[in-house]
Amino acid sequence: MHQASPPAADTQRLDTWLWAARFYKTRSLAKEAIEGGKVRLNGHPAKPAAKVRPGDELDVSRAGEHMQVRVVALNEQRRPASEAQGLYAESAESLARRERERELRRLAGGAPAPSRKPDSHAREALRRLRGKA
């Protein structure tokens, strides 16, 4: 009888890696982002079950920021942020771009606060905008 070989320890699912590296709060959010085209693996659109290994390049867009990172290590468990940062290395140009964008947002001052809470029509419009209607 042939026995299935154990999974290779040098690869990990993309969605679990993004969760363990603290890019997303849950694996489900990571999966949604990948399926929504917010994550590219080695320059190509990815699937949640795509295997990542050290040395792979990821382009991650989240919360209005775009990061280019290289996978340095794998970890199946979600660890503290200080340890999670050791799982990847952000490129120098990505870091500089994010700093520049952050400074531009700070200088722009952001959107003014609404004068009152949204009513039911406004809440429905917001849900449609976010794609959750």
Rank of each mutant, 00 (worst) to 15 (best):
A21F: 01
A21M: 10
A21R: 07
F23I: 12
F23K: 06
Y24I: 12
K25N: 06
K25M: 11
K25W: 02
T26Y: 00
T26S: 13
S28P: 06
L29N: 09
A30S: 09
A30C: 05
A30F: 04
K31P: 01
K31R: 12
K31W: 01
E32W: 02
A33V: 05
A33R: 03
A33K: 01
I34D: 07
I34F: 02
I34C: 08
E35K: 13
G36Y: 05
G37C: 04
G37H: 00
G37Y: 00
K38F: 03
K38N: 12
R40Q: 14
L41H: 15
L41K: 10
N42F: 03
G43Y: 02
G43V: 09
P45V: 08
P48K: 10
P48N: 11
V52W: 00
V52H: 01
P54T: 07
P54R: 00
P54H: 00
P54N: 00
G55Q: 03
G55E: 00
G55C: 07
G55S: 02
G55F: 02
D56C: 11
D56I: 03
D56T: 04
L58A: 10
L58G: 08
L58D: 09
L58R: 11
D59R: 11
D59F: 05
D59Y: 00
V60D: 09
S61M: 04
R62E: 06
R62A: 12
G64D: 02
G64I: 03
E65P: 02
E65F: 09
H66N: 13
H66Y: 10
M67Q: 09
Q68F: 05
V69C: 07
V69Q: 06
